[in-house]
Write a protein that binds this DNA or RNA. Sequence first.
DNA 1: TGATACACACTACCATGGTAGTGTGTCAAT
DNA 2: ATTGACACACTACCATGGTAGTGTGTATCA
Lengths: 252, 252
Amino acid sequence: MASKLLMEKGLSDVGRGKGAGQREPSRALEPVNNRMPISPQIYERLRRAITTLVMLPSEALSEQDLAQQLGVSRTPVREALIRLADEGLIDILPQRGSFVAPIRLSDVEEAQFIREALEVSVVQRLAGHASQAFIASVRANLEMQRKAVAEGDRELFLELDEAFHRRLCEEAGLPRSWRVIQVVKLQMDRVRYLSLPEPGHLETLLAQHVEIFEALEAGEAKQAGARMTAHLREVLRTVQRLNLARPDFFGR
Amino acid sequence: MASKLLMEKGLSDVGRGKGAGQREPSRALEPVNNRMPISPQIYERLRRAITTLVMLPSEALSEQDLAQQLGVSRTPVREALIRLADEGLIDILPQRGSFVAPIRLSDVEEAQFIREALEVSVVQRLAGHASQAFIASVRANLEMQRKAVAEGDRELFLELDEAFHRRLCEEAGLPRSWRVIQVVKLQMDRVRYLSLPEPGHLETLLAQHVEIFEALEAGEAKQAGARMTAHLREVLRTVQRLNLARPDFFGR
DNA sequence: TGATACACACTACCATGGTAGTGTGTCAAT
DNA sequence: ATTGACACACTACCATGGTAGTGTGTATCA
């Protein structure tokens, strides 16, 4: 039973606090929509537990257990599991059980394909149409990335990395595309989480970000796309190494 | 109250029958996984009701009502609604109500963008790598499309159209990509459902299918991609017309 | 007439009980 | 030692009760 582990890693005690770490705006008279249902919160926690490998691939779950550990009833847990199954992070076998999906090479490769198709199109659309505010904010982001790398703060770098890619979609006016990317990216997040402690890796990623940005700023659509392709394919190298190092995480 | 309408259109009486019209294989010793939970069936029915405009945009729903009309409890209905909300077909306002999402121009356009990015990549990857079995099956599909057009069977043509595009993804070994396309396509399906009775439209689509196929067969990746782009953009013309004809279906 | 307090009728939401289906271990018979 | 039957523990699944939150209509007061 892995319940203790989950507890210690901070899975329990939901609490009706604020949603995903958003900054509190200093303006009064906000829409007050903080009364968020807890079901999405459960989803969020479980998703994080999976992508950070707190819950290991192929591990058996159960609505009952998770509900107890999280301190809520089975219903919101079940709803979260269904959603995670939709996204391919969990396999639900009717009347048998729910299991953390093993890392499937085919899924990772296809996620890579989807992400590449979308993000390349995004930067190509964006090239030459970037606003000044956008340029400035991305430049600031890249500067923070540089600091994170210098300080060796991998966690922070990951967040900035994500923000960088999300920002591109937002500027292009494509929020739903980012949602899709976010979902398929989940397949790779587990891989990346393991692969971080590789020397020089963060530097490579940062350099690629800068190159993409420069092509974008210069309005060179084709080059921006090509560089994005090269950048995203970095992950594939990682998954190959990991497949050899930890074959027990992988499945059919 | 639109309950009567829904009943008559075949929304009620779920029944634990077979899943989505699959052919029964004549081999013994099959996995027998026909004991499908009814929750996905409810989802399927609601989805169809929305895309075929049995349930109109902005129409108010309620777990309670739907459960009664469908003859099941509120739980599977709720689960279906959550999934539909995830896919952007339903807006759930906590503690207030659930509503069929209005057709949003921005959503339709972005769905178009996503689909284009993906499907163009698919045909480019596929060009020149198509198996003989694939060539044959697509050829058969196109022949059936021709018949459907000749007989003016719009419903059948839509199915064959969908099968055509799905087949491309399958042959490319990209089932998840088809899933993504399927989801974003939902945004356009409502539009298409209204726009069918336009003279010469089916002929145009069929001709485009043939052109894509020929480029694919000839291994001309670039041209296949270009033709797919042109093909998919047909929908945009439709949505513009419809926006003028039925502005009440559209929202923010 | 206009604004305000309030009761009511809804909603989605979470909790919980009951059930059919499935795997597993135990024990008997071969 | 292998196989088979059977009881049991476990699962996801659906049904249903209770509750907090929200909009709306309706009296009451200025």
